[in-house]
Amino acid sequence: MVSSSPTTVQKKPISWSNIFVGAALNLCEVTTLGQPFEVMKTTMAANRSMSLPGAIRHIFSRGGIKGYYQGLIPWGWIEGATKGAVLLPVSSEAEYRLRLLGAMPFLAGIGGGMAGGVAQAYLTMGFCTCMKTAEITRKKDIGPDGKPPKTTLQVFGEIYKNEGIKGINRGVNAVALRQCTNWGSRFGISRLAEQLIRKFTNKKEDDRLAAHEKILASVIGGGLSAWNQPIEVVRVEMQSRSPNPNKPKGLSVLGTLKYVYKEAGMKGLFRGVTPRVCLGIWQTVFMVCFGDYAKEYIADRSQKAKKL
């Protein structure tokens, strides 16, 4: 599909400011409600017989309010800063190139989001996502010998010693597939929602949407992007440190999908989708809506600076 609109496609400049803003937005997102939603959906995906109220009680029993921030420091912060820094410049460049080729905003948004998501997974997210999941799913009880549970850095060192780079990046292909479909959906559906809002409010393509309209579009994009929850369940299962003697070792993405389906059926593949919808909305409002405003602000400042 190509756009018949004569609107000139303007590129939002990529600069160190964009990279910094992406990192800052993602750090703010994960430090507020992002990590609690992450912990809830990961707990449910790893324990597929657990209900949402059960997961909330289980998480609270592992440290009270702090239990909802398991894995945030240092892994969540490292991941948030690096993946946010990658997403905005890569997705912006890919979206701009697709618009130049004549793609409509919806398709360009999908392409830009997919490119940004894949870049996130392979450049920055592999070991952080693996370690966050390990921190959320591993046992933290005092052992029979009376020794306290290992710290997160001790667990990291143990995995690296026993399994090397491959061990701390376990499930990275599933992460890439998740991020590709995540941000392709979030950007694409958000752009489509923006077009529909413009049509409903009789605004032209160049007209600026009101803040509440941008947020509404991001809420729609973030909520509907949870359709790929089976990929997320597979990712969690591949990275989980919960002991399970019945689980075959060395499963691929497809093998893990078959294992989860055989064990828990279609319902198991969508376990944790409710907190995932909330997480998707929260992330999309930050990275699509607030990200657009931040890029516009930086572009305006750059233009003013050139005129001086």
Rank of each mutant, 00 (worst) to 15 (best):
I59C: 09
G222W: 07
M104K: 14
C128S: 15
F127R: 10
I231H: 09
G146H: 05
A103S: 13
D292C: 07
A217E: 12
N169A: 05
T32D: 00
Y96H: 15
G22M: 03
S61A: 13
I281C: 04
G167E: 03
A305Q: 12
S302K: 13
S15E: 07
G171M: 06
G63F: 09
W75M: 11
I220C: 01
E38C: 06
G76V: 10
I65F: 15
G223L: 04
G143F: 00
A305N: 11
S5G: 06
G265K: 07
C289M: 12
W16N: 06
I65K: 08
V155T: 14
R276A: 11
L27V: 14
F200H: 13
E237P: 05
K214V: 07
K161M: 03
P53T: 12
L25R: 11
M104C: 12
A217T: 12
G71R: 11
K262H: 01
Q35V: 01
E135M: 08
N169Y: 05
G255V: 09
L25T: 12
C128Y: 07
E93Y: 13
M287P: 06
G76F: 11
R208S: 14
K214I: 11
I159R: 14
K262D: 07
L308P: 00
W77F: 14
R198V: 08
Y122R: 06
Y297S: 14
M238T: 00
R138G: 11
F127T: 10
C289I: 00
R97G: 06
I59E: 04
A103G: 06
W227D: 02
A226S: 14
M114N: 05
T256N: 10
T124E: 07
M114Q: 03
F20G: 13
I142A: 00
R48C: 03
R301C: 07
R235G: 12
V233H: 01
L87D: 04
K140R: 13
G64W: 07
A24K: 02
M40T: 04
E163S: 11
P13H: 00
R138S: 12
I65H: 08
F106Q: 03
G167H: 04
Q229I: 01
G117S: 02
I110C: 06
E163R: 13
Q195V: 01
I168Q: 10
K204H: 10
G157Y: 03
G188R: 03
R208E: 15
N169E: 02
P13D: 08
G64P: 11
L27D: 01
R191I: 01
G64S: 07
S242E: 15
I59N: 08
K41Q: 14
L107W: 14
M1E: 08
L196V: 11
R191Y: 12
R170W: 00
G67V: 06
A210S: 11
